[in-house]
């Protein structure tokens, strides 16, 4: 084992877990975007093909997966702003812990507004 480096935000506690989550959500969104660019490309092939594929987005299972996608975007995007503030704002490193909880609070608030409405579209 290497010796513990002197103080880094990326090791232990919130600094590390937020980084792990940021990484996992980033990869998930990346793979979604690969698929999404291809499904959108079907509008150039035929309206029937596009509608058929987009209709799967309206099924219960994919509809629930979209909640996961939105949660991932909310966390990755808002935590990304936190990372940027840590790097560029003079007091960023000092407040990184508080900012983490602010990120979680904003993400949960938006998610709480979005979820019932989305579910009513998918199951309604």
């Amino acid at each position: 084992m290497p010796t513990k480096p002197a103080g880094t935000l990326y090791r232990g506690k919130i600094g590390m877990w937020s980084w792990v989550l940021h990484r996992i959500t980033g990869v998930a969104i990346f793979f979604f975007l690969l698929v999404h660019t291809l499904d959108t490309a079907l509008v150039r092939v035929s309206p029937e093909a596009y509608n058929a594929v987009i209709n799967t987005y309206k099924t219960p299972i994919i509809g629930l997966a979209e909640l996961g996608l939105v949660a991932a975007i909310l966390f990755h995007g808002l935590n990304g702003i936190r990372v940027i503030l840590i790097d560029f704002w003079r007091k960023g490193a000092k407040y990184q812990n508080v900012m983490f909880w602010i990120v979680i609070a904003i993400a949960l608030a938006i998610f709480a507004v979005f979820t019932p409405r989305h579910l009513s579209h998918v199951f309604g």
Binding site: T40, V43, P47, Y50, N51, I54, Y57, K58, G63, E66, V70, F114, R117, H118, H121, V122, G124
Partner: peptide
Amino acid sequence: LYSGEGIKAIDFAFVA
């Protein structure tokens, strides 16, 4: 995904 009918409204005509 949120406005109007959300995901239900997406089809070729929506993109057009």
